[in-house]
C-alpha cells in the first residue's frame, strides 16, 4: 500500500543542511497497524506528514496504492488522499464553530455527497462511537477524550483505507487514552490500516509493528 524509497527531508539553517529524515525506506501493507516511536525531534511527525502528504520530502520516491505520489498533479493528489486517508491529530483540531454533527459532516460535504447520504453516514458514525446524545454540542462543551472520539469519527466518516494518527492520546489521561487505543484496535480488526505516532511504549504495543526512529533514521 505504501512504499517509501530513500526519503530525505532537511531544512537549511544558516547555510548548512539540518536533516530531519535521512534515507528512509519503508513499506506498509494494507491492514497493518504501525506505531512509529522515537524521542522528540527524531522526525516521527514529519514522516507521518509525508505519508499523509501534508508535507513533501526533499528527495526520494513515494508510492501510494501503486501511484507515484510526487509525480502527481496537486489536484489529483488531493483527490487520491481525500478518498483513502483520514487524519487524527493530537490536539483534535475540531472546528470550534461547528457542532459535533457538523464536524463529522464536513469531509462528506467536500466529497459532494447528497444531504441524504451525509445524514445516513453521520448518523451511523454517531451510533458507532456512542455520541448520539452529543451531536448538537460544540467542541468546547466536550472533554478531551470525547473531542478525540469526534475527531476519529470525522476521520472515518469518509471511509478511508488508511488512518494517520499523530499522538492521538497525547492530550488525554490514561483512561481516555486506553479507550482510544481500544477503538483503534477494533478499527484495525475491521480492516482499516493505521499508522500512529506515539511516545508511549504502552500505546505502541497496540500496533502490529513498531518502527523506531532516531535522528531521522529507522533503527531496526
Amino acid at each position: 500500500m505504501i512504499k517509501l524509497e530513500n526519503i530525505f527531508k532537511w531544512y537549511n539553517v544558516g547555510g548548512t543542511r539540518s536533516f530531519i529524515l535521512k534515507d528512509i525506506n519503508l513499506s506498509i501493507e494494507q491492514g497493518d497497524f504501525v506505531s512509529i516511536m522515537g524521542p522528540s525531534g527524531s522526525g516521527k511527525s514529519t514522516l507521518l506528514n509525508i505519508i499523509g502528504m501534508l508535507d513533501e520530502p526533499n528527495e526520494g520516491k513515494y508510492f501510494f496504492m501503486e501511484e507515484d505520489v510526487l509525480a502527481l498533479k496537486p489536484k489529483k493528489r488531493t483527490a487520491l488522499f481525500q478518498s483513502y486517508v483520514g487524519y487524527v491529530f493530537q490536539s483534535y483540531h475540531l472546528i470550534d464553530e461547528l457542532t459535533v454533527y457538523e464536524n463529522i459532516e464536513t469531509p462528506l460535504i467536500y466529497k459532494n455527497l447528497s444531504g441524504k447520504e451525509r445524514k445516513a453516514i453521520v448518523g451511523d458514525m454517531l451510533d458507532r462511537f456512542g455520541i448520539v446524545g452529543k451531536k448538537d454540542l460544540f467542541p468546547a462543551q466536550l472533554s478531551g477524550g470525547q473531542q478525540q472520539i469526534v475527531g476519529i469519527a470525522r476521520a472515518l466518516a469518509a471511509t478511508p483505507k488508511l488512518l494517520l494518527a499523530d499522538e492521538p492520546t497525547g492530550n488525554l489521561n490514561s483512561k481516555q487514552g486506553e479507550e482510544i487505543m481500544d477503538l483503534f484496535k477494533q478499527l484495525n480488526e475491521d480492516g482499516v490500516t493505521i499508522i500512529q505516532v506515539t511516545h508511549s511504549e504502552k500505546n505502541a504495543e497496540y500496533g502490529k509493528r513498531i518502527i523506531n526512529l532516531l535522528d531521522g533514521q529507522i533503527k531496526e
Partner: peptide
Amino acid sequence: TQEIAIKKSVGGSRKQ
C-alpha cells in the same frame, strides 16, 4: 488559519 487547515485536511479543495 486553523479552521482552514482542518478543512483542507478533511479533504476540502482550495476552490471549495
